[in-house]
Design a binder for these strands. Structure first.
Lengths: 198, 198
DNA sequence: GTGTATACGTACCGGTCAGTAACATTGTCA
DNA sequence: TGACAATGTTACTGACCGGTACGTATACAC
């Protein structure tokens, strides 16, 4: 008589996964430097050696957090509000609409990848490297979308949108009543002024 | 026979001042959390008790750094490139011109006040409080300038400029080859599209 | 049953952190 | 000379940090 039912319906849930989840939550909310590995494992309900079996160091755990964050970011960016968009302008505006709504909520903490580059000025930090690579990709994607909108200078409009979005990320953490409120209007202004009319 | 010449040309330089200077440099370059008080006093050429005679805690030292940074900021903002401007549009564009030039330099670290709010999510941190108060003032000042430019909606243009500027601060630390390059063009676009023409 | 591999916990390490106590030294002014 | 204020010197604390040596429980193979 073996296990009867449920081969593994109750999930054991690997320690490494619990740690990733715990780290993601804590690192995002409080910052990477502010959170010790003890706090991470305690919240995960595991012990420290389990962490170091799956991750070489706290820095590498932070890098894993960055990769998880990035995957999640792309999902939210490519389907803002869970919806797909064929029109580039509507796509970007939808993302900014959702983003700026979140950014005026209490406790908003901006973009985890951006925050990590602020926390780690040194270029050889593993977490920072993931973040930097992501921001390059994001910039390219925004230029692409700007091109699809028919911008006269897609590079400029793409950069404009990136600057605007990063501005939302960071000002959103400064106060609940910040300039992110105006972001959607600004985005429209920017796009319309950049797209050839006649 | 007293001191002959130079009442104090060779400056004794108060320990507190040396500490402020040392802290400002280190906190800005490496981040506040990343720098220990030992490093601050060592660079200042003083000892730890001297620090704690002038500052109640590291947090309070960080708050002092914020205040110093802010004073310096206003100087640079109100006279970009050392020059005064009577025209609001030229004033803002001059600031953004200088800023974006700095932002593409290697080792650029953005705005110390912005960075501090990223490092300290908790609202009761003394340094963060200084930074938050400053950002409120800055927002008001930009709206004021937007009004002087004759914007149809000064609040929107002011916010647009703030989002843009914060975007420059933060993307400037992500890479030397970032969107800050386009910032001046974007600023002109934004202003021209916001100012009533006919 | 007895290997053997995997997954995990207990207990600990040395270092660094912010902060302090007690005392010695200096320079200034009167 | 004497008093005061500012600083340096030395040594220390307790908490926390990232990281690890080592023992333990379970499961599957033969």
């Amino acid at each position: 008589m073996k296990k009867a039912v449920e081969p593994s319906a109750e999930r054991p849930v690997r320690a490494a996964d619990r740690i990733r989840a715990s780290a993601s939550e804590l690192f995002y909310r409080e910052g990477i430097r502010a959170v010790g590995v003890d706090e991470v494992v305690e919240r995960a309900g595991v012990t420290k050696p389990s962490l170091y079996r799956s991750f070489a160091s706290k820095d590498e755990l932070a890098a894993a957090y960055m990769r998880d964050y990035e995957a999640n970011f792309w999902e939210k960016f490519e389907k803002p509000g869970g919806k797909s968009y064929s029109d580039a302008r509507e796509h970007v505006l939808a993302y900014i609409r959702v983003l700026s709504a979140n950014a005026v909520a209490e406790g908003y903490r901006g973009c985890g990848l951006t925050n990590a580059t602020v926390e780690y000025p040194s270029r050889d930090n593993p977490a920072r490297q993931v973040a930097e690579a992501h921001k390059k990709l994001f910039r390219r994607r925004l230029r692409e979308l700007a091109g699809s909108m028919g911008a006269r200078h897609p590079a400029v409009l793409g950069d404009a949108l990136l600057l605007l979005i990063e501005g939302i990320y960071v000002t959103g953490q400064q106060s609940e009543d910040g300039p992110a409120q105006s972001a959607l209007t600004v985005a429209k202004l920017l796009i319309d002024a950049s797209v050839a009319k006649g």
